[in-house]
């Protein structure tokens, strides 16, 4: 069944006889790009954590070296456009300040480093949206349960993401495919056909929840009936993000998927950054974690 529906298969089918017909040639090529290293800042504000930032240099795509950390930079934090303080440099490219960002507050970061243009970026930490999780034990004997999550979406544009991982002792497995979940407010940008899955498709890496057509409603996510596992602890993370982190995540996943594509037929993706003259992201998020097991 899979072979029938997946379109790239027939593309190959048509393409390859023609290719052989024209005695085509394939050559290894070395693409030469001149690369000027630029600053890359990664800093996501989360009210549950102190503020940490990572500063490094970008590299040419073929560069085998590790990323070079940038030390000695001056990084300032502004809250509602008022200077709050400078992040301390731990000389490994990591910078931090012992402060928990506040819900609904706008922050600005300013980065100065000799030899690089100074840049500023802003983010507004989302307000804490009400998210509730309920469990229905569908078969106590078989230890089957069903979890429902309600996001009480406030009016206005909000962006949510869902991802998960499981832990078995010290081993952590990160889910990269979501084949048993589907709600009409899921963004299908990372949805790919998979005829053997429950809905005929699956989401890759994460699920983006889009309130465009459901603004102000309760967004209910119905997880499938599951059996309690005695081996794994299943963790679901619901995350509300600001607009910059949302774009950055979406384009990062698109770029990952594009790299994994077998046929170069998708539109190219430039990873979103709100760092002028540089790369990375200055964004914010609010997290809601669910341990996906019923308590006895």
């Amino acid at each position: 069944m899979k072979e029938i529906i997946k379109l790239p298969a027939w593309f190959l089918f048509v393409l390859f006889p023609l290719i052989s017909l024209f005695l085509s040639c394939r050559n290894d090529v070395e693409l030469s790009f001149t690369h000027e290293p630029k600053l890359c800042l990664n800093c996501i504000l989360n009210p549950d954590s102190i503020i940490k930032a990572d500063l490094s240099l970008s590299q040419a795509i073929g560069d085998a070296e590790n990323f070079i950390p940038v030390v000695g930079a001056k990084i300032e934090l502004y809250e509602n456009n008022i200077f709050y303080g400078a992040l301390s440099d731990n000389e490994t490219g990591n910078y931090s300040i012992k402060y928990h960002p506040q819900y609904g507050v706008e922050y600005k970061i300013r980065v100065e480093k000799d030899g690089h243009p100074t840049f500023e970026a802003t983010t507004k930490v989302p307000n804490k949206t009400r998210i509730e999780s309920t469990i229905e034990i569908t078969d106590p004997k078989e230890e089957l349960f069903k979890r429902t999550v309600d996001i009480f979406d406030p009016k206005g544009k909000n962006q949510y993401w869902l991802y998960s991982y499981s832990i078995n002792g010290t081993q952590k497995n990160i889910s990269t495919l979501y084949a048993n979940l589907y709600e009409p407010f899921f963004d299908d940008f990372n949805k790919k056909q998979e005829t053997e899955s429950k809905y005929g498709f699956q989401y890759h890496y994460m699920i983006r929840i889009n309130d465009d057509k459901f603004d102000g409603n309760i967004l209910q996510i119905n997880n499938p009936v599951q059996r309690k596992s005695t081996i794994y602890t299943d963790v679901h993370i619901y995350m509300e993000v600001d607009i910059h982190y949302d774009k950055h995540l979406k384009t990062s996943i698109q770029a990952l998927m594009l790299k994994e594509e077998e046929i170069p037929m998708s539109e190219p993706v430039q990873i979103y950054s709100n760092i002028n003259n540089g790369y990375g992201i200055f964004g914010s998020c609010v997290m809601f974690t669910i341990i996906n097991y019923p308590t006895k």
Partner: peptide
């Protein structure tokens, strides 16, 4: 893609 950088 001609550039790589550290990811969050």
């Amino acid at each position: 893609p001609d550039t790589k950088h550290k990811g969050f």
